[in-house]
């Protein structure tokens, strides 16, 4: 097996590639969740995390459960929850902003014990 064949084989898309894509997305989501100073960006990162999970679900549905595609049903559920979470996140953000007119996470330290 020549080296080119090996490379081609590696790059031939399968379930693994989708899982790796999901993992990359998940890691970016974690990164954004932790390092952002803007609360809105934190909310966006959470959405990206949920998208990463959705990719995993749909990929598994495609590769191992093509007849029932239950993974896709779960993806739908997750989207609904994500929508609810986004709405609540906005509401929390607004009430927070009303108490303290800032979106800087570095200034939200009232939980300090």
């Amino acid at each position: 097996m020549s080296i080119i064949e090996v490379i081609l084989k590696i790059f031939n898309v399968g379930l693994t590639h989708y899982l790796i894509l999901g993992t990359i997305l998940f890691c970016i989501g974690i990164l954004g969740l932790i390092i952002s100073r803007n609360v809105i960006r934190v909310l966006m990162s959470i959405e990206i995390l949920l998208c990463a999970v959705n990719i995993n679900f749909v990929a598994f549905a495609n590769y191992s459960d093509i007849n029932n595609i239950q993974g896709q049903v779960f993806a739908i559920f997750i989207m609904a929850v994500a929508a609810a979470e986004a709405a609540l996140g906005l509401a929390i953000l607004l009430s927070l902003y009303r108490n303290k007119p800032t979106v800087d996470t570095e200034e939200m330290k009232e939980l300090k014990g």
Binding site: L33, I34, S36, T105, E106, M108, K109, E110, L111, G113
Partner: peptide
Amino acid sequence: LRLFQNGNVQTYATILF
């Protein structure tokens, strides 16, 4: 441990992850 309890939610998220 007290260093972690700095009131920033993102720090707690760091520990969680």
